[in-house]
Design a protein around this nucleic acid. Structure first.
Lengths: 112, 112
DNA sequence: ATGATGATTGAACATCTGTTCATATATAAT
DNA sequence: ATTATATATGAACAGATGTTCAATCATCAT
């Protein structure tokens, strides 16, 4: 059972150190979106070149539908932007910070 | 259907820009682990102070069992380290990069 | 207008995830 | 030895997630 505190002071100060709920939510959303290998690959790909749905599907070997579903997620989170050209939809990165984020994370895993 | 390429060259060069599979896996694992609000809060808390399971449970208002399960995940990914002191298990951050990662991400969301 | 093509959407599905509950392990105190 | 306490583990469950398939929408070419 034990719904008690071992060290009340530490918990109190840790609680203050915790970011506010909205920030926590936004942060975990960003991390979560990059936490799926498919989406991470998409982000890396469109960071390198503006690509259409078909080519992303070919590149990642999944259906165009799956790509489209994921692009909606990425667009909602404002990680990518869309350019329309006739029938085609071209996607590219809409965020410089994301590359920093990936860079920092890459440095992290290379030091294990 | 259309299992074809629109722009073969672009796909080819995008494929090269893609990191190798192991890196992709490791990266998405790191992001995924921070992509859950509970784990993110745990990481923020133990980055601030060394805490035991009970106090983490109190802080986040979930069961000690749930904390314990998550600590195992975080320990496996080497994000936190454990110190034993009698019956107690004290956890603290085992990675400086993680704080950088959260910092960069925080900057990102503050600019929306 | 008709057909073809690229993209999107919705439903369905299997799989994964995070939590709780019950139980087990480990240490400490009596 | 027994009891109490802190943590860990395993099973079970509900809810979320990522994909495919089928259908739809939008644009282009004939």
């Amino acid at each position: 059972m034990a719904q008690a505190y071992v060290d009340v002071q530490k918990v109190k100060s840790a609680r203050k150190a915790l970011l506010n709920p909205e920030t926590i939510t936004s942060l975990s959303e960003i991390f979560k979106v990059l936490g799926d290998p498919t989406r991470l690959k998409i982000v890396l790909a469109v960071a390198h070149a503006e690509l259409c749905v078909q080519d992303l599907a070919s590149l990642l070997s999944i259906s165009e539908s799956a790509i489209s579903h994921q692009m909606r997620v990425l667009k909602t989170l404002r990680l990518v932007k869309q350019r329309r050209d006739g029938k085609m939809a071209y996607y590219s990165l809409d965020d410089e910070h994301i590359e920093d984020l990936i860079r920092v994370a890459t440095r992290h895993i290379s030091e294990l």
